[in-house]
Structure formats: structure tokens, C-alpha cells
Design a protein around this nucleic acid. Sequence first.
DNA 1: ATGGTCGACTCTCGA
Length: 264
Amino acid sequence: MTLSIATWNVNSIKARLPNVLEWLGEAKPDIACLQEIKCQDEGFPREEIERLGYNIETVGQKSYNGVALLSRFPIEEVAERALPGGNGEEEQARYIEVVISAPGGPVRVASIYLPNGNPAPGPKYDYKLEWMARLHAHAAKLLAYEEPLVLAGDYNVIPRDADVHDPAAWEGDALTLPASRDAFFALQWLGLTEAFQHLDGRAHQYTFWDYQAGAWQKNNGIRIDHLLCSPQAADRLKSIEIHKDVRGKEKASDHVPVVGTFDL
DNA sequence: ATGGTCGACTCTCGA
């Protein structure tokens, strides 16, 4: 039994609905983690997506951020609607974690929109690092369950120089700063496996191309959308694919889907 | 080439 889990920063679900429906219809992921839905829960186009056979949970926010989780299989529990460890009130909509009743057994999946952090240094960068520290603490707790777990999303971290077209152009950016990379690798040292590097690892395989300056046409991209897997998920990971062609469509998001398949 | 991309929204910010 194969289970496919995708992540895609759609950059507004309303602006992207035709693209999202087309892609879901073709790729047919079992589970899809969406980021930057940029709408409140009541504004999410549920019916159109439910019609394709998905159960839906959202954590929305007006104008900015917002995450969603789509699943062909029942969502038996919404474990978290925010990343634990925050101080509540000004919480941004960047995290949802669910337990899905997949045919091969339960799988815990989170849709993650990690703060961008620019400009760095500054309060936005501090918030990014604080958020990553909270994610580290929460992931440590989840790993103790020793269950299949996939933390999928826009991490806003370029792991290696090989994951950016021009490392010099990104020097000093919050997506490549050593503290950002250190925090990202600290998640892996906990025991999480980054699916792309584990199975593929090729240089210059990107998941984001800026709208500006002809970045897509010049293939000036970066790889910032990742699947992090617990040992119980990584052991069953069979493939990882970046759906690059999606970036070339009309009205494309600046990110493309990344899809992992598992024998689960 | 005196602009340069998009999306949400009140007009300017975030990415």
C-alpha cells in the first residue's frame, strides 16, 4: 500500500484554485499539506476540493500565512492548531498537525509554514529562530512516540549551497544564514530525515522561483520546501519528486509541489 | 529600457 504525501505553498488558495484543482486531479496525492492559503477558515474553498475526495482541516488567517491539510483518508484527530510553546495571542497561522487513519495504520502529518525571517538581523529573524527552537522541542516530543510522522512544508531554509542557483546572491539572507541552517540541521540530528537529500540529493533541484527578474526563465531557484520524516516513516520512504512543471502554468504559485511516497 | 512580480487590501506591506 503506497501513501503519497505532498507539500505545496500555494501563495493564496483563492488566486490559485484552478491550478490547485488541476494538480490535485492529476497528481492525486493521498495527503496534501498547503501553506500560505492567505484566507480565513470560512473563506477556504472547501466544496470544490471536497468534491475531489478530500477531507480538509485549515488554520486560516486574514491576508497572510495560513495552512491547510487535505486527506483522502479520515482525519481522526487534529492534534495541534498552532505550534506548541507560543505565547498565544499574536500567534500566526503557520502550523497544523493531524493524525490520519491511513489503510496501513495511523500517520501523523503536519503542514508547516516557517517564518521567512527577513530582514536579518532584526525582530523578524528573531521570530524565525524562536519558531525553529519551538519546532525542535515539539519534534523531540513527537519522535518519542516512535510512529510514522511527516513534517512537511515551506521551511524557508536553503539547506546547502547546492540548493541555490547563486549562493553569493543569497549570502546574508535569512534563508541561508548559518543560524538558520544550524537550526534546520538540528531537526535532523534529532532523528528526522530530510526526504530529498536522503533519496536524491542532486544539486540545483529547486522548489521556488521568484516572480521577479525572470527567475523562472533563468532557472534561478532555491530549494526550501521539505519533508522531514521520523525513522518509522523514513524506513518506508520510496520516492521523492519535485513537480517542477507546475511552475510553468498560467497563474502559477512561486512554489511547486514536492511529493513523497511511502509504503505505509 | 529611469521599470522590474504578485497577492491581499486601502494603499502599502510581505514575500
